[in-house]
């Protein structure tokens, strides 16, 4: 495997869930169902009676077969939909890739947020508790609570944040977005 391909694999494995856990759960279900069907089919083929109640018999014996059917249908539909959703949704792990010549580098979004917070905090000259950052797949949203009377320039702060993020060359790219809250705090 070429080094390039290898690094792609390393990063992809780190950035997205492989869905192995969901598959294991699904397979356990498959095993249970197959065990049930297989046992019943064997017994039927041998001419013996069923081990557990057959679906038809179970329905016949209960008071309200329709309810049971609907519940079963609902459960199956629910699980089915969940599985399809899991199959389609990318399953991000809350990390971003940072460009690097030698290594494959992956960073937790929490660390990214912390670094971004620090950059904005320094430039805005406010305390750490006044800056809150949330990093999602493509956006770094920074909210600064200003000190009353000290005006802050949101676009200048955004530019600094953008510069910091651009230097990291993140993948997927993160757009910096610094907003200054309308209401400030009196003391600094």
């Amino acid at each position: 495997m070429t080094e390039q391909k290898l690094y792609r694999r390393l990063v992809r494995r780190s950035l997205h869930r492989s869905r192995s856990a969901a598959i294991v759960a699904a397979l356990v279900g498959v095993i249970l169902v197959a065990a049930y069907v297989g046992t019943e089919a064997t017994l039927a083929a041998l001419g013996r009676g069923p081990l557990l109640v057959t679906p038809d018999a179970a329905l016949a014996s209960s008071e309200n077969p329709t309810v049971i059917l609907l519940v079963a249908a609902g459960a199956a539909a629910l699980v089915g939909i969940v599985l399809v959703i899991l199959a389609i949704v990318p399953g991000r792990r809350g990390r971003h890739e940072v460009a690097n010549e030698r290594l494959a580098v992956v960073v937790d979004d929490a660390v990214l947020a912390g670094a971004l917070s620090r950059v904005v905090r320094r430039e805005a000259a406010v305390a750490e508790s006044r800056v809150r950052t949330v990093v999602s797949a493509r956006r770094g949203l920074v909210t600064v609570t200003p000190t009353s009377g000290v005006l802050l320039n949101a676009s200048a702060l955004t530019a600094s944040a953008k510069e910091y993020l651009d230097a990291l060359e993140l993948s997927p790219a993160v757009r910096a977005d610094v907003s200054v809250a309308r209401n400030g705090v009196v003391g600094s």
Binding site: R19, I23, A26, V30, A76, V79, G80, V82, A87
Partner: peptide
């Protein structure tokens, strides 16, 4: 993995139907 999950999901939905 994802194709498998989608298939099982669709089978379940069909069974539910």
């Amino acid at each position: 993995n994802r194709v498998f999950l989608a298939l099982v999901g669709l089978v379940l939905i069909a069974a539910a139907a």
